[in-house]
Design a protein around this nucleic acid. Sequence first.
RNA 1: GCCUCUGUGGCGGAAUUGGUAGACGCGCUGGACUCAAAAUCCAGUGAUAGCAAUAUCGUGGGGGUUCGAUUCCCCCCGGGGGUACCA
Length: 955
Amino acid sequence: MEYNFHEIEQKWKRYWAEHHTYRVSNQSDKPKFYVLDMFPYPSGAGLHVGHPLGYIASDIFSRYKRLKGFNVLHPMGFDSFGLPAEQYALDTGIHPAVSTANNIKRYKEQFANIGFCYDWEREVQTSDPAYYRWTQWAVVQMFEHYYDRDANKALPIKQLEQKFEHSGNQNVHAAGGFDKKFTAEAWKQYSHAEKEAVLMHYRLIYRRPISVNWCAALGTVLANDEIKDGLSERGGHPVEKRSMLQWSLRTTAYGERLLNDLDTIDWTESLKTMQRNWIGKSEGAQLFFHLHRRKDNIEVFTTRPDTIFGATFMVLAPEHPLVAQITTNKHQDEIDDYLKYVQSKSEVERMADKKVTGAFTGAYAVNPFTKTKIPIWISEYVLKDYGTGAIMAVPSDDDRDKAFAEKFHLPIIDVVDKSKYPGASLHDKVGIMINSDFLNGMEVPNAIQTMFTRIEALKIGKRRINYKLRDANFSRQRYWGEPFPFIYDKEGITYPVKTSELPVVLPNTDDFKPSSDAKSPLSKCTDWVHLPNGYTRETDTMPAVAGSSWYYLRYMDANNDKSLADKEAIKYWQNVDLYVGGTEHAVSHLLYARFWHKFLHDIDFVPTTEPFQKLINQGMLQGVIESIYLKKEKTNGHHHIYGSKLLLASNANLNDYIKLYVLIDYVTDYGAADSHLNIAGIDKFRKWRPEYNDAIFETIYGTYHLGKFTPKGDVSDVKLVTHSEVGKISKSRYNVINPDDVIAEFGADCFRMYEMFLGPIEQSKPWDVRSISGVSSFLRKFWSLFYDLNTGKYLVNEVEPTKAALKVLHTAIKGITEDIERFSFNTCVSKFMVCVNELKKLNCHNRFILNELVILLAPFAPFTMEELWEKLGHQTTVCDATFPTFDESYLKEDVIMYPISINGKKRGEAHFPTTMQPKEMESLVRDLEVVKKWTEGIPIKKVIIVAGRMVNIVV
RNA sequence: GCCUCUGUGGCGGAAUUGGUAGACGCGCUGGACUCAAAAUCCAGUGAUAGCAAUAUCGUGGGGGUUCGAUUCCCCCCGGGGGUACCA
């Protein structure tokens, strides 16, 4: 019997489908375990080798848990709303629903090839109306709730209205909130529209104007990463900041709980730290600075009120509303120029810029403590959305303020003496106050507290908690997303669509261009927008994070048409036990999902407070990007294309050339140092990029033009050497490697194990198919324990296993169990290899040993193990076997080898009985030849013996 | 810029709590088999010196703690991810 993985894969793929091997029930006596992958966006490029990394890891873990006796939920679905499908529709006219359906079909075929144990009866697609009905339902619930600070949870907005009726908003402590106080009488006098406007300040999803990146030429709002140097990446059109009415989620309401509950979940400390920093809680003072000779004042938030005597100027965000009002005529031009400069930069660029820039408004404020007049500047380093959009600048104790003061020659007053704290940096809150009037001589923490009290006593500000976290902008002017379940009457008052009338189905159209008035393409579906009663629909759609914020709940009861999921199902599955996904989602998706979950918890929909109990991050697989160089200037009407070797040899200025990515299929010796295009490769390239069909290809071996090769010297083939660099695998870099090709050549089990063998799951690493042969020969070697590879003879015997073989087996069981539990799958593969190498050496074909090994390996190589399990005479799937347990007694050794080190450096080895105590060993150690050799003539200072570990002699 | 991860042979990586640096695999070198090649098998393989035994150096760079540091602390350099509308 030969190892034919093609036949084996087809056979078991069919078996699993026919026997519903991966169907999961919501009723079971077994303990539950929920393993979840971050579901993919079904892109047009199909699955590439980087995607399955996490999926294989979670699949192994799911199968392992099942073998360990758990009822395992391991579902898969698609995050199928998104920008790329819409962009593709704009380019090709193909409807996003059509391209998305095709892509999903392709993904599912690819998933099936890899042998994942998903229960496809629970599949979800976020763009399916049966799914987004419940996304809309949750949004309606948010609209009808507010966050009550006293109850510390979301409560129905009806209860808030009752409070208003009863006592106005005097005693209401709510997130967000209306900034003016009103009485019950006043409330009752309000018109319907006025009441609704007030309530909008409390709802958990609410509408407000937000500044967005508006690109008039494209007629759309752009993401920061779609903007390069102030221009749209697509087309290079100008982009401006523009205020638009948008829906927002009141994520800040949950800031405190999102922060505190991190302590209850099992995520890496680094990920929790990222979320903590994103939430960015800080305690400080809200302070008002009066303007000099004007009535207005500037609100700032500072965590260092103690340094106020060093506040020698103020800086406003360029977008701060006061800027226009306070700028003096004399400085108007300067400010306008600066605003123009800032407009051209994205927020990331503004923060990343090391250059110190700014402009003076000509206006002054008064420092409330020193009573001195301080100038008001604007600068890009102050962001409008963080804090109050204005700062009091203390150049002596803040790096950026200091750089700013130095550049613009503003005064610097030292207020903290750090001489007692050597090594303390500028932002450490330590030191003794100086030059600070009544604070002089105090330690910083004490001074901060003193200032809080003083500020509140003087009524110029308040102690306050500030969060960096902002409410999430939830509106998109796009077609391919969930429609909002909101309608407006003629006055513009918002009404949620009745939940019984959900879903609000996305209307069909073939016009995906944004409308001319900065509205989404949906606004052009006039029949859909205008309701018979004169009301109109919201035409923005939701962002992709909407559907992905709660999909893990839908899997628990995916086909329910009465509810988001049945409460009994949620009660059974609780939350996700293990979530596997990339760190690129560290804050956005993971924070929104936590927010959503907490809201559903508040309205009694889910019993748990957190969605994902344990989370591990998978790294990215990187690929090699291959490119050649195009000279920017044509010569004699021809493009010239150069190989990297020739270009480097000629010391050319790279600025004169453009890097052209080459489809890696055309490259010979892909990824190697001398990767290149030969004649066939160049011809394929010319066909692929017809604009370069008549280009002249220059290589160190000669010139190739229109099918004709003019060699330099005695060579027969062109070698257009390509430049190789490690980077992201992506369609735009033409370096996507399809797992199907790898599977066709080496088999799915080999592919699965090789992906794991590449390295630790959480680390990024380059994909290099060349070393896959090691795993391939391992699987054949494993097979050869059952069948002679030459004769096909069945080798398995029924004799008693030897002590040596049992030791090999139990070493493997111990190591692999521990490694799976700590998600170290690469070392599992190594341990399997060591185990098989040892059994080969022992010439072991023992039935008992092999039976256990098949179960052990089944999570990693399910196809082959099903086959061998059957060959061993079992009638049922190996998925329902019992994972072997490890027995210490097989591993006991009589003697232990100790490394003998002199001053920490290993110089020899010695064997001692396992039971021997360090005290007994010492004199024997001193008599060892190695020890005598290295300590000749030098006294031994100390002998360190760690039982079972090592010996170190100190001289 | 800020937050976070990461850096070990020619390559992917191992070393789980501070205790033998380089497991396992690829590649490379030599050998067996073969008319030959592929496949397979066996041996070697961090660098330097040496016939060898062995010695010295060696985990991005610099410093520190320790009997002992890839592992802990401080500073610096390189690479990845995020930075709120890619997913």
